[in-house]
Design a protein around this nucleic acid. Structure first.
Length: 218
DNA sequence: ATCCCGAGGG
DNA sequence: CCCTCTGGAT
C-alpha cells in the first residue's frame, strides 16, 4: 500500500536511518573493482558473511581478472561451492573475467551499459559495483532487502525490482541514490526482518503503513 | 513464471 | 521442516 506522499516519506526515512546507520556501506570485503564484482556476483541469494568467508582464499588463488579468465570451471565451482548456485556463479565469474580481459583491457568498465554486457551482471550488481568500487551512481541497487522494505514502507506498489528502482529514482534526489540502499539493507538486517520484523523498536514505526500489522501480530 | 542451489536460523 | 539470504538468465 502506497503512502500519500511517497517523496516526503522517502526523505523522512533517509533522515532518520542516516542517524541510526551513519556509516552504512557494503559489508563485502574487497580491494579492487574486480574483487568487488566477483564478491557481488557471489552474494546473490547468500549472506555477506558467507561470501567474506570464501573470498580471502579465492582472491589469493585468483589474484586478477586474467587468473579467473583462465580458471578451470570445475575447480572454481568447488572453490565457491558454499555460496550456493555455484554452477551458475562459477560460469558467470569466468565469463565476466574473460569479458573484462578481452573487451575492456583487463579493467572493470565503469559504466552501466558496459557492465550489463558481462554475464551474471544485472542492474543490482552493476549499481553495487559502480557505487562501491568507483563512487559512481547511475541507479539504485534493489536487492531483496530494498524490495521488502520499500514495499512495507509504502514507497512502491511494484514487485519487479527494475520497476521498483524506477519508482525510487523518481522519488529521490540523485545525491541519495547511492546510500539509500545501504540504509535499508542495514535496517532490514537489524530490525525489519523478512520473517519477523521488530516493529516496536523501529524508528520508522510511526510512519510505516505496515507497522500496525506486525505489532498486532506480536 | 521458473530454474539455479548451499548454509544458517527458527 | 520451512524460510531467507545484497539475483540473473531463460
Amino acid at each position: 500500500m502506497l503512502v500519500e506522499n511517497p517523496e516526503k516519506q522517502a526523505l523522512e526515512i533517509i533522515k532518520r536511518l542516516s542517524v541510526v546507520y551513519p556509516d552504512a556501506k557494503t559489508a563485502l570485503n574487497f580491494t579492487t573493482p574486480f574483487e568487488m564484482l566477483v564478491a557481488t556476483i557471489l552474494s546473490a541469494q547468500s549472506t555477506d558473511k558467507m561470501i567474506n568467508k570464501i573470498t580471502p582464499a579465492l582472491f589469493e588463488k585468483y589474484p586478477d581478472p586474467k587468473a579467473f579468465a583462465e580458471a578451470s570451471l570445475a575447480e572454481l565451482e568447488q572453490d565457491i561451492k558454499s555460496s550456493g548456485f555455484f554452477h551458475n556463479k562459477a560460469a558467470n565469474i569466468i565469463g565476466a573475467a574473460r569479458g573484462v580481459v578481452s573487451r575492456f583491457g583487463g579493467v572493470v568498465p565503469s559504466g552501466m551499459a558496459d557492465m550489463l554486457t558481462l554475464p551474471g551482471v544485472g542492474r543490482k550488481t552493476a549499481n553495487v559495483v559502480l557505487h562501491n568500487a568507483f563512487g559512481l551512481v547511475e541507479g539504485i541497487a534493489v536487492d531483496t532487502h530494498v524490495k521488502r522494505l520499500t514495499e512495507r514502507l509504502g514507497l512502491t506498489s511494484n514487485t519487479d525490482p527494475v520497476k521498483i528502482e524506477q519508482d525510487l529514482m523518481a522519488l529521490l534526489p540523485r545525491t541519495y541514490w547511492g546510500d539509500f540502499s545501504y540504509y535499508l539493507i542495514d535496517h532490514g538486517r537489524a530490525v525489519c526482518d523478512a520473517k519477523k520484523p521488530h516493529c516496536p523498536e523501529c524508528v520508522l514505526k510511526d510512519i510505516c503503513p505496515s507497522a500496525f500489522l506486525f505489532i498486532q501480530a506480536e
